[in-house]
Amino acid sequence: MEIWINPACSKCRAATAALDEAGVTYTVRRYLDDPPTAEELEAVLTRLNLDPWHIVRMNESAAAPLKSLPKDPAHRADWIEAMVTNPILIQRPILTTDDGTTAIARDPETLTRLLTN
């Protein structure tokens, strides 16, 4: 199991605490220090069955240039490049289980679902 976190994020801290409480073995990826590649983001998006604009934190100042960028297949690579260049834009925490199930684990229900699979 791998979890992408920002240690300053309360949702990330709650998620890792829940994993610890469940006794689950997992790997932490501090994605601000170790940003994902475009290929890794594409793989996560495929597993999430989402488009890149669905996981962008639009309230971040780095998202300002994206506000006018179309949300369409022609601009998909631009959205991904923005997240690779500014990983603060990536929604968190993202948890991938050993079977490849991936979710944005921002709430206890999602964490529980992933831990009971």
Rank of each mutant, 00 (worst) to 15 (best):
V44W: 08
I3L: 07
R30A: 12
L89H: 08
N49L: 03
S61T: 13
V84Y: 02
T102D: 11
V56Q: 06
A74H: 03
Y31H: 11
L115Q: 13
P93C: 00
E2T: 15
E81Q: 15
V56K: 09
N6H: 10
E109R: 07
M83W: 09
T102Q: 07
A62D: 15
D72F: 15
T85W: 11
P35Q: 02
K11C: 00
A22E: 04
R30V: 09
E40K: 05
V44G: 05
W79P: 01
R92V: 01
W4F: 15
N6S: 08
R106A: 10
L45D: 02
T16K: 07
E60K: 07
R113D: 15
E21T: 13
I3Q: 02
A14T: 07
I104R: 10
A18Q: 06
P70G: 00
I5W: 00
A77F: 01
V24D: 12
A18P: 01
V44H: 07
P87C: 12
M1D: 03
D51V: 00
I94C: 14
R47C: 02
R113I: 09
P7R: 09
T37D: 07
T116P: 04
P73L: 01
D98H: 10
P87V: 14
R106Y: 08
R113K: 13
A74V: 04
T97H: 09
V84M: 01
T46W: 00
I90N: 08
T25F: 00
K71Q: 15
I5V: 15
P65E: 12
A63R: 13
E81A: 15
W79R: 00
P108D: 14
K71W: 02
L48H: 07
R47G: 00
M83N: 12
A64Q: 10
I55L: 09
T96H: 10
L41M: 05
R30H: 14
A77R: 10
S61V: 06
I88A: 13
D20L: 12
A63N: 07
E60T: 03
I5P: 03
I88E: 12
